[in-house]
Amino acid sequence: MIIHDFTSQSSLMNQFISELREVTIQKDSMRFRRNIERVGEILSYECSKILARTTEIIETPLGTKEMTLPAKDVVICSILRAGLPLHQGILNYFDTAENAFVSAYRNHIDDGDEFEIVVNYMATPSLEGKTLLLVDPMLATGRTMKSVYDVLLQQGIPKNIHIISVLGSTQGVDYVKEHFPEDTHLWIAAVDNELNSRGYIIPGLGDAGDLAYGTKRHFDSAQ
């Protein structure tokens, strides 16, 4: 795996990350969503530098110009619901991309530390031979990302895979590095070194989905 970790880089993105972490600022859910969106925009720009290219002749009012442009084979797949603002930030830049959505969540067994990943919804175009941008703001254990990827493979084998996350743990980065193809690219704004017993990033920023959209409950559709 090729890892693009911006943790130690001094840039404007650090301002957005610090606001995402800050308990007083993150209470403003609109600002929280927008900061995730802005991180997605920056990571999209960085990612775009290495995507496949095509050459097109562009007609201007006074002539023509040959331009090198990113290939139009991108599918953005976000993990609901926390991935939505990050998805929007990426879509702001890859505005001609196809879109996919997968619902996945942790089911803590008997409310203990152990959990399983439940995937219960997917909407996606074919992924065969395309560039997949797999989007989730939090890369904690990496198990959700792997479970979603396994389900997505039912829709075809991507030509290229790029994982885009706002914040991760060292353990999560190591997990996806082990379980994804070697030529996968990981784009991540910040990495923390610790997970707690329930698999949450320390110091992290809390539950990104709750901070963006409010607290939730999980319901068994069979009931």
Rank of each mutant, 00 (worst) to 15 (best):
D110Y: 12
I157S: 09
T144E: 05
A189V: 06
Y149Q: 05
N196I: 08
L152G: 01
V148P: 00
H162V: 15
G172W: 03
A190T: 05
L152A: 02
L153P: 08
D136K: 07
A212E: 01
T184G: 07
G209E: 02
Y149V: 11
E194K: 11
P181C: 07
L153K: 07
G112P: 04
I157E: 11
K146Y: 08
T144M: 05
I202L: 06
L127Y: 02
L127M: 07
D192E: 03
T131W: 02
D183N: 13
D113K: 07
D110R: 09
L186G: 15
N196F: 05
A190V: 12
I202Q: 15
E128R: 15
Y149P: 14
G156N: 02
N107F: 10
Y121F: 04
S165T: 11
D150Y: 08
T131S: 03
V148H: 01
I117Y: 00
I109Q: 08
I202M: 14
G209I: 00
P203G: 11
D111F: 10
Q154G: 08
F180Q: 15
Q154D: 06
K177E: 07
V119H: 13
V173N: 08
K146Q: 14
V166T: 10
V173G: 11
L134Y: 01
V118I: 07
R143Y: 15
L132W: 00
G172K: 04
K130V: 02
Q171Y: 14
V176R: 05
G156C: 01
